[in-house]
Design a protein around this nucleic acid. Structure first.
Lengths: 210, 210
DNA sequence: ATCAGTTTCAAATGCTTGTTTGAAACAGAA
DNA sequence: TTCTGTTTCAAACAAGCATTTGAAACTGAT
């Protein structure tokens, strides 16, 4: 029987590998990342990758899964049954942006997601089905209510895309933002400010939709 | 003295290299792209890359430059001096979306841009200053007029971001869209439909901004 | 026909990569 | 201690890569 502390020691190199791998995969992407850089940064031997995980690909899969599980635990206030559609829209934007940009979330997790978006791997399919589609359904319901169900499905999708795209912009296009307005690189708007803006912007637009 | 046709023949392998390189770089990214695949697809010898260009990196630089120049020549109707701010906003969205999604534009050009967004190279800085910032200024002026100049610069930026982000979404997050709504992968909305939607959505939101 | 310059090519070179290996270090049990 | 299973490690391996090379093919001019 092993004490928790001893298990932690035993699995120390495994944990260090996972953390280092997250950083390096995010910085360089899967193919440009080398197991040598990962193991050096983790302070372990190269062979540790093949011992604790089967190979580089398996290491990546585990990193991505950890990333996803970790992001589940954060987010803004959950919507309540009795809330109005307006409030639930705000909750949605709030939760989504917190998921994407929360400072407690290691920066490399957002980068990994962005990479999956331009160079999709098999992991993206799983991510969409398990995590993104449920979120998407929530938003569809909200928009359906806000528009009184008078619009076609296609138009509802486009409204949903307009909401989501504003959030994703601050995750995916940060390099663009920082080059256009260097000031924002130093003093970025708070997540609360972004939520407030995107909620107001989208609500006005959805209300006007017909 | 050489006839134009003869020059074309002489530089044939160079042109074929550039075209094949554009495709392969976009499909695989710079590092995953191999000189061998590029030269095979172009039907020329491996050494041609080092003869016509110094190396793989120089080939990439030239491809990116060609891509940028080519995209300048297309776009929707230019705004006219006397147009209202509303019309100029539509022109902006139209021109921007055409630039990003025009079917005549080889698909790999959009992909290359998306790649620059998640893995910026030096080329991105040049691109922002030469092409994106001027466009951005146009939009700022339009928004300034639409809001009567009553908002802070920061709020004007956020409104501009909300407009631009909706356009970029269809360029950057296509893998997401196609997985969420497979129907849209087969029968995507026309650019005109997107312009109509984004213009209406944004205009209503900007008008409501205060 | 000969020549000089340009362009192509097959083969080889040297480097980096992911992965394997076999020995060594370590831990707990008998 | 001795034994057994686990974990680490330095070194080596095999494959893939960009790049080089030197000869061959081709071009237009002399």
């Amino acid at each position: 029987m092993l004490a928790a502390a001893e298990i932690a020691v035993i699995q120390d190199t495994r944990r260090r590998l996972l953390f280092a791998a997250g950083e390096v995969f995010a910085e360089r992407g899967f193919h440009q990342a080398t197991v040598r850089e990962i193991t050096e940064r983790a302070g372990v031997n190269v062979a540790a990758v093949n011992y604790h995980f089967r190979d580089k690909a398996e290491l990546y899969r585990v990193v991505l899964k950890e990333c996803h599980c970790h992001s589940e635990s954060m987010g803004g206030p959950m919507p309540v049954e009795g809330d109005t559609a307006e409030d639930r829209l705000r909750c949605f934007v709030d939760a989504f942006l917190h998921r994407l940009l929360h400072p407690d979330r290691p920066a490399w997790q957002g980068l990994l997601m962005a990479r999956e978006m331009t160079q999709p791997t098999d992991a993206l399919d799983a991510l969409v089905e398990e995590c993104i589609r449920p979120c998407s359904r929530d938003l569809e319901v909200i928009i359906h209510e806000l528009t009184g169900g008078k619009l076609s499905k296609d138009r509802e999708w486009m409204l949903a895309f307009s909401v989501v795209s504003q959030c994703l912009f601050y995750l995916h296009d940060r390099p663009l933002i920082e080059r256009l307005y260097p000031k924002l690189a130093i003093q970025p708007p708070t997540i609360e400010q972004l939520v407030e803006h995107i909620h107001a912007f989208s609500l006005a637009a959805i209300r006007a939709a017909q």
